[in-house]
């Protein structure tokens, strides 16, 4: 396994933000880390890349084993040799990920000069090659351009090029297409899927959009308020979601032939961190299947038959007790 995360918990001050996360991704595999804003997706990405400490966060339990080495407790100097070199990071907003005062070429060159020790000339050749492989037309010209000269889709490709420049083994992409048009989103997503296949990379794709997950992921891990709600193989999760939250997330995407009014969304919002309860299911206030047990006892994740996990007292495929219904009202 390229990356194996087990029971990862993290806190800032006295507030526990991530609570016992477990997931894994292998080479040639795409893992979708899914959830709404506030579910802890981006913080998980920062924890994996050792950047969470800069926000004052402490990992309190669990392990992050990358290619045989546990990264928890790794020194910053050691993390620096990993980050950008073996673990590439694609940020959400390409508009703010690039330095407005430095040319595209110089920004991508930096990565291979630092991590691969390439000369200035070799680094530029390397950059142009990567840019053209990402189907950026006239890569030599683009390398001399500044970020403001490029469209959003082009900028996102440059950010991907930076993540690829040192030939990493794992890429973490945090909502890489959220700011982009649908046609550009399709290009970028297909490009990422292609990279995973051709370069035998592991990819962790962070998103709130289940249609993107359905498109390229092999495995899914659904997060809710800092905990894993459900995980498993993508086909299984979509064919028969078991956590009510997973089912609701899939139901948020409009599909052809849907009757008007059938797109319901999920009522309410993810609770603020200060409102997290410990001994409860954090999704209970928004869940139609919740009963008293969900509000007083945390559903512990159990391993499912497909090798995934499920943390729910009343999964979608279990009969709803009438008591639960009455109680919910």
């Amino acid at each position: 396994m390229l990356l194996d995360v087990r029971d990862l918990s993290l806190r800032i001050g006295t507030v526990g933000l991530l609570d016992g996360l477990s997931f894994s991704v292998d080479r040639g595999e795409v893992l979708g880390l899914v959830g709404e804003s506030g579910s802890g997706k981006s913080l998980t990405a920062l924890a994996l890349t050792g950047l969470a400490a800069r926000m004052g966060a402490t990992i309190t339990a669990g392990s992050v084993v990358f290619d045989g080495t546990d990264l928890v407790g790794l020194k910053e100097s050691a993390y620096r040799r990993l980050r950008g070199k073996r673990i590439g990071f694609i940020t959400q907003n390409p508009m703010s990920a690039l330095d407005a005062l430095v040319t595209i070429g110089d920004q991508v060159d930096q990565v291979s000069r630092l991590h691969l020790g390439l000369s200035k000339r070799a680094a530029r050749a390397h950059t142009v090659e990567i840019l053209s492989r990402l189907r950026i037309p006239e890569a030599e010209v683009v390398a001399r351009a500044y970020p403001h000269n490029l469209s959003g889709g082009m900028k996102q490709r440059v950010v991907i090029a930076m993540a690829l420049a040192a030939d990493p083994d794992l890429i973490i992409a945090d909502e890489p297409t959220t700011a982009l048009d649908v046609t550009v989103q399709a290009q970028i997503v297909m490009m990422l899927a292609d990279l995973v296949r051709k370069r035998d990379l592991g990819l962790i794709l962070i998103t709130h959009d289940m249609s993107v997950v359905a498109q390229i992921c092999d495995k899914v891990c659904v997060l809710y308020a800092g905990r894993v709600a459900e995980s498993g193989p993508v086909r299984q999760i979509f064919a028969a979601p078991r956590h009510p939250y997973t089912e609701a997330l899939i139901g948020c995407i409009p599909r052809d032939g849907m009757a008007p009014g059938s797109l319901r969304g999920i009522p309410g919002t993810v609770a603020a961190v200060s409102q997290y309860g410990a001994d409860c299911c954090r999704f209970a206030p928004r869940c139609g299947r919740a009963d008293a047990r969900c509000r007083t006892q945390q559903p512990l994740p159990v391993v499912t038959g497909t090798g995934g996990m499920l943390a729910c007292h009343h999964p979608v495929d279990s009969p709803v007790k009438e008591a639960a219904d009455a109680d919910a009202r």
């Binding site: 997503v189 359905a214 599909r255």
Partner: peptide
Amino acid sequence: SSFVPDPTERAQIVPL
């Protein structure tokens, strides 16, 4: 270019 929330309908995507 629109993704469908169904992993069995992947092949139909033709990016512009």
